[in-house]
């Protein structure tokens, strides 16, 4: 599995190469890219912070779960950190699988789980201010069992 948190530009080529397999009939790719607007405000750029060591551990665990649940052959998950301009890739997922249906479903599930539990944060920088985003799907806001909160 290719799992990485990195300040470097994310390119799909190496991720595709990392999941290629002779027995895979499908490779599904997801690119999360920086959008120029959110909730009606114009976004200039994003800054991503991360806890890299733990983020890679959590991404590995999620990738392992996805392989089991969806019968995936291989998974690559890369998340970028630092300043990202509009149109740049922040999250790159590639999965390979025997058949297409599970590759789509597994990739979709991976994105959702990453947004819930991987310790990565984005700051939106607008024309007139900035704010660290609290992801609506984040474990800390909605999904945590009461026992995990303070």
């Amino acid at each position: 599995m290719l799992i990485r948190v990195t300040p470097d530009v994310l390119e799909p080529g190496p991720a595709i190469a990392a999941v290629e397999s002779p027995s895979a009939g499908a490779i599904d790719i997801f690119l999360g890219v920086v959008r120029d607007n959110n909730l009606g405000r114009r976004v200039q750029y994003l800054v991503y912070d991360a806890y890299p060591a733990m983020a890679e551990k959590v991404m590995s665990a999620i990738a392992g779960e996805a392989k089991e649940r969806f019968g995936l052959e291989a998974v690559a998950v890369l998340h970028r950190t630092g300043r990202l301009e509009i149109g740049e890739t922040s999250l790159l997922i590639a999965v390979s699988c025997g058949h297409r249906k599970a590759s789509f479903e597994g990739c979709h599930w991976l994105v959702d789980e990453i947004k819930k539990r991987v310790p990565v944060w984005k700051k939106e920088v607008w024309d007139d201010g900035e704010e660290w985003v609290e992801g609506p799907e984040s474990l800390g806001l909605q999904q945590a069992p009461a026992s995990m909160r303070s």
């Binding site: 922040s90 310790p119 990565v120 660290w132 992801g135 474990l139």
Partner: peptide
């Protein structure tokens, strides 16, 4: 030490405790 924990989790000497606000990766 890089594993999610609870407020009542014990902290040993030399441990690393991370305070994690709601995540927003992706």
């Amino acid at each position: 030490d890089e594993e999610y924990a609870r407020p009542d989790t014990a902290v040993a000497a030399g441990a690393t405790l991370a305070l994690i606000p709601p995540v927003s990766g992706g």
